[in-house]
Simulated scan of single mutants.
Amino acid sequence: MIITIYTLLTLLALSALYPFWNALVVSFNVGTDTAKGGVTIWPRAWTFENYNIILQDDRLLNGFFISVARTIVGTATAILMTAILAYGMTRTYLVGRKFYMVFFIFTLYFGGGLIPTFLLIRSLGLMDNFLVFIIPGLVSVWNMIIFRTFFKGLPVGLEESAQIDGCSTWGIFFRIILPLSGPVIATLSLFTAVAHWNDWFAPSIYITNPDLLPIQTILRATLNSNIVSESSTVLDSASIGFIEQTRNLTSRSLTMAFMIVVTVPIIMVYPFVQKYFVKGVLIGSLKE
């Protein structure tokens, strides 16, 4: 029975790993050779040309920098703002606390829609602005609920002893609460960072300046290069020219190399938070 279970789990793991491995193999294979087919688990004609083309293009490097900056700043500010809100929602003396909680939960089920959101972003002056990546995602209600559940499970005596020693509310939060919240911060930071890194939709709507496009939006345009039109509001003429050039040079192999370059950085984050992940992801599953 155990052998059967491990065999099935191994096959399941291999089926999940193979697409990524095949993309890696194709990215190191000559484009014209890839077009012949049959490249599966090992490169048939080794080459680094695909990566050379990608890494030499300033537009892609700029998009990579925008994605990294957005992920770091967006994750740090979102976790901090959400944690502050959650800590405030644990205070029993907060006037209207139940109303605020109902109001926040309401937003989980109902949203304004794409057009009202677009009009709001434009009225705030966030079009073609780096802050459009940061401000709309400053607070996550779902993450706030998880933070709130974790904070409520901390011993009350910690705060009471700190207050006796003259510590302020902000001091308690930054000196006691946050240092004890490592697992939940690591877990929610990972989820938030992945969301920021993978987001291509928002920039395609709110950004028309090619210098502010993150790498995921550029990747999306590359994958859909066959349907790029002259009226595109996302890519400029230089971007379209680059797509045409790379399509002729490397075909499918360039796309795979592009995907590997975009995917590897966020994958490398997982080992650093793995020890907190299991504990953090269970928070809120037992009690509220």
Rank of each mutant, 00 (worst) to 15 (best):
Q274F: 00
F174R: 13
N209L: 00
K36F: 11
L249K: 13
D33W: 06
M1H: 14
T47A: 08
W197D: 05
L188I: 03
A13G: 01
R59G: 11
I176P: 09
T7V: 02
M127D: 09
L11Y: 04
A76G: 02
T169S: 13
E288A: 13
G182W: 14
V228D: 04
W197I: 01
S231F: 07
Y18L: 02
L60D: 06
I3H: 14
I176M: 06
V264I: 14
W197Y: 02
L235Q: 06
L138P: 07
T217C: 06
A202N: 15
A186Q: 07
V141F: 15
I66S: 03
N50S: 11
A13F: 01
D199H: 04
F118T: 11
S251K: 03
R59L: 05
F103P: 04
I172Q: 15
N22S: 11
M81W: 13
I121W: 02
T250M: 00
G171K: 07
Q274D: 13
L249A: 13
I260N: 07
I243T: 05
W170P: 03
P136E: 09
I54T: 09
W142S: 13
K36L: 12
D211H: 10
L94Q: 12
A238R: 12
I115S: 03
Y270F: 15
A23Y: 05
T40R: 04
R220P: 08
R70V: 10
L213C: 07
T255P: 00
N22W: 11
N129I: 07
S253K: 00
F106C: 00
I177Y: 12
F20A: 02
V184I: 15
W200M: 08
S231C: 00
H196S: 03
G280W: 08
L212K: 12
T34Q: 12
F104H: 08
D128V: 03
T246D: 07
L85H: 07
F99Q: 09
F242R: 06
T217Y: 09
Y93D: 15
N22Q: 13
S285I: 08
P183K: 06
R122H: 09
L212G: 06
V269H: 08
L14P: 02
I172L: 13
S161H: 00
F133S: 08
I53P: 13
Q56A: 13
S239M: 09
